[in-house]
């Protein structure tokens, strides 16, 4: 184990120390990791695997299943709903506007399956805040905010 790995292992151990170390806590543990590191790298999977005593392959299998844990590059994600109801309200254009604004920013614009906000279509989600009946302008602002 090299030094960098050692540091990550130690900080993940710290991150998970107050939760029960059992298989049933794997998803909550992965949430903590992704909220802290913004992405789940092979090293982090190794650290969770060691911390919770769950085989690496099992942790990988679970971590790679969920779309909200999948954030390669660790940029701040902004999710634009591109399912039917939001597309009918112009989600495609909004996505392009957000992508353009995010080009040189540490922000990743991602398409999302139905966000369950169809009464306020088109919708987007910053991971913290839901943007309802959103506009290109609001999304661009959200991208700039996320970049800070």
């Amino acid at each position: 184990m090299d030094n960098q790995n050692g540091t990550i292992y130690a900080s993940v151990r710290l991150l998970l120390q107050d939760m029960p170390h059992e298989r049933g806590q794997l998803l909550p543990a992965l949430w903590r990791v992704v909220e802290h590191y913004r992405e789940i790298t092979p090293e982090l999977i190794g650290a969770v695997s060691e911390g919770l005593s769950i085989p690496y392959a099992e942790v990988y299998g679970v971590a790679s299943f969920y779309s909200l844990l999948d954030n390669p590059g660790g940029k701040m994600p902004i999710y634009v709903c591109t399912d039917v109801m939001c597309l009918l309200q112009g989600a495609e254009k909004l996505k392009h506007a957000a992508e353009e604004a995010a080009q040189d920013e540490p922000v990743a614009v991602r398409e999302s399956a139905c966000l369950g906000q169809c009464d306020y279509a088109p919708a987007a989600w910053s991971g913290k805040r839901v943007l309802r009946r959103t506009t290109a302008q609001e999304l661009v602002t959200a991208v700039k905010e996320a970049a800070q």
Binding site: D83, M85, C114, G116, C118
Partner: peptide
């Protein structure tokens, strides 16, 4: 875990 397309009743 309301994720069905067009469904948001449990949220409300």
């Amino acid at each position: 875990d309301e994720s069905e397309l067009g469904t948001f009743k449990d949220r409300v």
